[in-house]
Design a protein around this nucleic acid. Sequence first.
DNA 1: TTGAAAGCGCTAACAG
DNA 2: CTGTTAGCGCTTTCAA
Lengths: 342, 342
Amino acid sequence: MPHTIKAQRSVTIKDVARKAGTSIATVSYVFSNAERNIRPELRQRVLQAATEIGYVKNAAASSIKGKPRGILAVVVAQFGNTFFTRMCVEIVSIARQAGYVVTLCNSDEDPDQERIILERLVAQRIDGCILCPAMSREENTGLLKKYRIPYVILERSFPESTTAHNFVGQDNYQSGHLATRHLLEAGHRRIAFSGWDSPIPNVCERVNGYQAALREFGVPAEQELVLTDEMSEAAGRRMAAKLLESKMTAAVLGHHETAKGALLHFQDKGIRWPDDLSLVVIGTPEWAGVLLPRITCIQRPEHPMAVAAAELLLDAIKHPDMPAAQHVFLSTVSEGDSVRER
Amino acid sequence: MPHTIKAQRSVTIKDVARKAGTSIATVSYVFSNAERNIRPELRQRVLQAATEIGYVKNAAASSIKGKPRGILAVVVAQFGNTFFTRMCVEIVSIARQAGYVVTLCNSDEDPDQERIILERLVAQRIDGCILCPAMSREENTGLLKKYRIPYVILERSFPESTTAHNFVGQDNYQSGHLATRHLLEAGHRRIAFSGWDSPIPNVCERVNGYQAALREFGVPAEQELVLTDEMSEAAGRRMAAKLLESKMTAAVLGHHETAKGALLHFQDKGIRWPDDLSLVVIGTPEWAGVLLPRITCIQRPEHPMAVAAAELLLDAIKHPDMPAAQHVFLSTVSEGDSVRER
DNA sequence: TTGAAAGCGCTAACAG
DNA sequence: CTGTTAGCGCTTTCAA
């Protein structure tokens, strides 16, 4: 817990009022009520006095009277993951333009951490929250609901009742389907899939998309061509090693974080793409931009998602009784040279 | 400014007191004063009641009585830059263990934005701040000083009076020197340097280190071998193109963000490292891990810096009268295969 | 157009 | 051990 130190008394409206020779009410009006008419000369004097003694309004104090705090929060499950980092940058920027400061929190895929974080955020009486849940547990949103804090669920949906929350996400089924179809259209038939063995349904949905694409092309799905493992470079390497045993001609690397390990393994073993193996990666990791030959990536809709989430939240704050809205975005192919026609 | 909506009345100690059949004082003591003795049975009843009606203490309200807010802030100049992202992840994690929530802000290298952000943070009466200043302007720290908000300057020092602030940084001179010496020791003599043409002194210091290393090896510095340009991939490409005109055998890519563009240019032109050119990059971008042949990098002390900054801030909060401290960390060589002996 | 004063949720003397 | 009560800095009626 934060160490308890008596804060030094800071500059307050009282000080400003004394300095300007007026009442605290007037000072308050100058700083918070645009409607109220104040004689320009007096307003000037107040502003002048405030500047001179360096007054900054205490947002915490004004919030207990029901004023908004001016703080939004974004809670993500993997803060270091570029996918989230990029969205955070965008959200922070939009929020700032709307006058908010953003608290970023990292649950590290741990629902208990998420719980603690949400409790602290509620304690701060934040004005709104964008939450990418660590796991599909609705309980953690209960707190937000109880305190009527507007929120948007980002990227990971709850299986039940998606329409009960504001939601912004991507279509994982579609990205799996798109990646696979891209390889099928290039003539590949033995196509493997590797992904993150996650507790959340996203990767499952990608696998569903993968299998559906195969079906559409009349290719029987084979269990041993679908691998999932934990999210680490080592796991990526393990999966790559296994993949090389099955004689596939192409692979969908279904999660950018494990894809790195897989590519490193291929490099070590001297497997070249697209000559020995055609590859599509779902996601656009930073390193994809420098590898030669260029990797074909499935570009996830990071930017539209971030914008939509931020705007939906701002809307929900303005209109507390707004019905919940859902926005789902699609991925696109960012073509490289890692897929060979056959 | 945030839209003004009257917040719904939320659960307060008053509600808990009524429910538990006791006074608000007792409830307050249960939730904030560990010292005070309360009959276990009563304490239980209070906690029970609180849980039942979903009470969460309003940190904003308790802060106006001088209690700490439980919020720290980190203000960086380039949030999307992995160097900062990684440090932020670390700082957030340490702060959370100490019971704080962290607000992350991005000034985008703009001192005016930084000013606005700091004003908002002061308005929130945050408990402490880690600031990586957009430019060497001391005025922005004035606000923090005025409101006695403990702070730590990160990575970018103010030219004057460094000892006046808590400071955690790296030795940029040393990283420039180290990179250059590494190439000199491999026998190179015509060594170029490319970097970010920044308003902050960091890159300059790296250039100083570069020049010092040359001097130590009796190599005359040549103006045209030192290039700086804006921080973008395109600028990196431009510098690479220019570098290829001078007949150097090695280069220090002095800033990881521009290094990417340079490497892309080399790739496009068919320039191979280390065969055609020996390379050292200052910094460890995500992509360095997958490029073959492996790039030799100067590993900056991200982790120790993040830890030191977080701990120094926590210290400064606990001991408001602590004299300012400075910690400067050194970089190390992370050897790859991009340097050839000659 | 201005100001006195009540009260927001919480803390901490102080009195019982 | 518990409760009464006077504020913290600010907003906002309401009356002047």
